[in-house]
Simulated scan of single mutants.
Amino acid sequence: CSIHGQLDLNEDGLVDLAVGSLGNAVLLWSRSVVQINASIRFEPSKINIFTKDCKRNGKDATCMSAFVCFTAVFLSAHFQTASVALRYNATIDERRYTPRAHLDESGERHTQKGLALLAGQEHCDRLQFHVLDTADYVKPVTFSIDYQLEHPENGPMLDDGWPTALKVSVPFWNGCNEDEHCVPDLVLDARSDVPSAMDYCRRALRRAPPDCSAFTLSFDTSVFVIESSRRRVAVEAALENRGENAYSTVLNISFSRNLQFASLIPKDDTDVNIDCVTEDKHPNKKVCNVSYPFFRAKAKVAFRLDFEFSKSIFLQSMEIYLIANSDSEEKESTKEDNFAHLNFQLKYEADLLFTRCV
């Protein structure tokens, strides 16, 4: 038995293998080997959800382009003018049940295409897609491709172990400065409608100012009077962002045991949503998401909080504590106005009826 591997008998640029034994000879030659280099780039490079530049299905959307590029590299110099047919699949947000972007041509997340590659020449397909409103602007949108030869049984073969898939992410622009570091400035203000002793004297008792001054001095501290007919207390509040976008803004509300949370109602015509939840373990606390996923720069929302007085718990004070914060890094120097603390010493108006029995 003899083996010879120095000649290129079929003139394909690759050394052939000749094997002879017992008066017979077999000629073996390999198919050409090709490597496929893939890349994806986006225009623009980030998704700008703040500027809707197109319409899709009658809705405002952010339109983007993905350029999917391939280059065929043949390992043999003899094949530098050859070509190869390729087929690839492209998928948006493949691991999500509902994608945040859709391809323009089909309205779906997936497409399949075929193309022919000339050796050493880059070929790019432009895939146009759009992004509608989504709740998740934090994690980037993924764009995945996998590819294979159109006719793997004939012609060149792929280099074993060479990548045949690629995943690239396109991030959302956060709307902040060029350094993409959002610095919000949250400002919270709150006032209650519970009357002070002076207000109660003037409005309910209808006494003259000198008499009301004497009335307030009869108390040890500055107190607030709860009239016998009052069943609720209202808090007028406003939250403003004087800085850059605040992501995952949360309003925490806590209140004393003699109060029960009734409602939170945004005022005026605002597009800022405030959604509150209560934890069973903490009935005197509320956690509210403000304009999730982000509270826009220079945005402001006014709202009204209503609390009911408990019919079984009577305390000498009433306390309501509001604090606003976000996942964005606010400067320490501007955090002092992120909270409002309403703490009232109370006096209850008696509602007594005296009758005389004869």
Rank of each mutant, 00 (worst) to 15 (best):
residue 1 C to F: 09
residue 1 C to P: 11
residue 3 I to Q: 10
residue 6 Q to T: 14
residue 11 E to H: 13
residue 12 D to C: 01
residue 12 D to K: 01
residue 15 V to C: 11
residue 17 L to M: 13
residue 17 L to W: 09
residue 25 A to W: 13
residue 27 L to Q: 09
residue 28 L to T: 06
residue 28 L to N: 06
residue 29 W to V: 09
residue 31 R to G: 07
residue 35 Q to M: 14
residue 36 I to F: 01
residue 37 N to F: 14
residue 39 S to V: 05
residue 41 R to H: 13
residue 45 S to P: 00
residue 46 K to I: 10
residue 57 N to W: 04
residue 60 D to Y: 05
residue 65 S to L: 04
residue 76 S to K: 06
residue 83 S to N: 03
residue 87 R to C: 14
residue 88 Y to E: 02
residue 88 Y to H: 03
residue 93 D to T: 00
residue 95 R to M: 15
residue 105 E to K: 12
residue 106 S to R: 04
residue 108 E to G: 13
residue 108 E to A: 10
residue 109 R to F: 08
residue 112 Q to T: 15
residue 113 K to W: 06
residue 119 A to K: 01
residue 123 H to K: 10
residue 124 C to S: 02
residue 125 D to G: 00
residue 127 L to N: 01
residue 131 V to Q: 05
residue 131 V to K: 05
residue 134 T to F: 06
residue 136 D to I: 00
residue 141 V to T: 04
residue 148 Q to G: 14
residue 150 E to D: 13
residue 153 E to G: 12
residue 155 G to R: 01
residue 155 G to K: 02
residue 167 K to G: 11
residue 168 V to A: 05
residue 172 F to K: 08
residue 177 N to K: 04
residue 180 E to S: 09
residue 180 E to T: 15
residue 180 E to G: 08
residue 181 H to A: 05
residue 184 P to Q: 10
residue 189 D to R: 08
residue 192 S to Y: 09
residue 196 S to A: 02
residue 205 L to V: 05
residue 207 R to P: 14
residue 208 A to R: 07
residue 210 P to I: 07
residue 210 P to S: 08
residue 213 S to N: 14
residue 223 V to H: 07
residue 224 F to Y: 12
residue 225 V to H: 11
residue 226 I to P: 01
residue 226 I to T: 06
residue 237 A to P: 15
residue 238 A to E: 10
residue 241 N to E: 01
residue 243 G to E: 00
residue 246 A to L: 02
residue 250 V to S: 03
residue 260 Q to R: 03
residue 262 A to S: 09
residue 263 S to F: 00
residue 264 L to A: 05
residue 268 D to Q: 15
residue 269 D to T: 11
residue 279 E to R: 06
residue 281 K to P: 15
residue 284 N to L: 03
residue 285 K to E: 09
residue 292 Y to F: 14
residue 295 F to H: 01
residue 309 F to R: 03
residue 309 F to L: 03
residue 309 F to N: 02
residue 319 E to W: 14
residue 327 D to T: 06
residue 328 S to H: 01
residue 336 E to N: 11
residue 337 D to F: 11
residue 346 L to V: 02
residue 347 K to I: 08
residue 349 E to H: 08
residue 357 C to A: 12
